[in-house]
Design a protein around this nucleic acid. Structure first.
Lengths: 147, 147
DNA sequence: ATAATAAATCTCGAATTCGAGATAATTTAT
DNA sequence: ATAAATTATCTCGAATTCGAGATTTATTAT
């Protein structure tokens, strides 16, 4: 059994993590909202922009979203003309999401801006601190995932 | 202007942070769901349990929730008999949320269990790593908040 | 070859959160 | 003392996410 101090330390880490993430995400959302997108839409476009066409199923796996939610987001992006659905000829169960030229143009403009915004948002830490935090967060994330 | 490497590091930190938090939160939600609560309900009860009666307004400030959302959560907890609303006699605009004996009993049972669960979820890091992460997350959070 | 199983996508309804605005009470300024 | 501004809470509708289940297609087992 963990000592009271160890437990309190974990509790504190949980609280501090929640707060910090809330502050960070708020800024990130503000940034993305400037582009007329929400974080999920941005994540989907970023995936298609950087990794090419994806089966709708795969998108859900990569950005950790339920299939019904993906349908919703892809619908919205299709209405905005940033992507189109393309049926897969080999497997008629599958539909690809494919970024349009409009989507490409949008992303090639805003992705660099987004990276600058992230650079500012994470400006509280220097490079070494970021490297270290990445390492520790991976450890933490893997452990939590495997429970 | 930040170098490409610095920007990529921030982007990577953002991605890793998002993933890690997603894994952690998923476990925490599973834990809390066992108690028949969602994370927001738990946060409200925890506040009342540890800090005593609170004006509804204050709850929103402490757990960072919009006033309309607080009304919704307090309604739910009141239906579950874990808290009651008490009008403030000094200022008739104010309503206190007050934990009931049932709520006290619930929290005194599940709060220790919750701390044990957190101890497991954060078990990927040792005490020193947690201390360090708390320090860095505070830096990160304050910086992001002040932008 | 047929039946059972699995996989991909979608539909639907519920849960949660937000923002805008309504209402009522208090405080501040004139 | 009255008017104006502020504060606390709530109502309402929109946005987003989920899970359960429906539908269609493909794969596996008999």
């Amino acid at each position: 059994m963990a000592s009271a101090n160890e437990q309190d330390l974990s509790l504190k880490l949980f609280v501090v993590l929640s707060r910090a993430v809330q502050s960070v995400m708020k800024r990130v959302e503000e940034d993305i909202k400037n582009y007329g997108l929400n974080p999920t839409e941005f994540a989907v476009l970023e995936l298609l922009f950087n990794k090419g066409d994806q089966p709708i199923q795969k998108i859900g796996e990569k950005i950790l979203l339920a299939s019904s939610s993906i349908t919703y987001v892809v619908d919205k992006l299709e209405k905005k003309k940033y992507l189109i659905r393309k049926p897969c000829p080999k497997d008629r169960r599958v539909t690809y999401a494919s970024i349009t030229p409009e989507g490409q143009e949008l992303m090639s403009t805003i992705f660099p801006e987004h990276k600058e915004a992230l650079q500012e948002i994470f400006g509280g830490l220097n490079a070494e601190e970021k490297e270290n935090m990445i390492k520790k967060l991976k450890k933490l994330g893997f452990h939590a995932q495997e429970l």
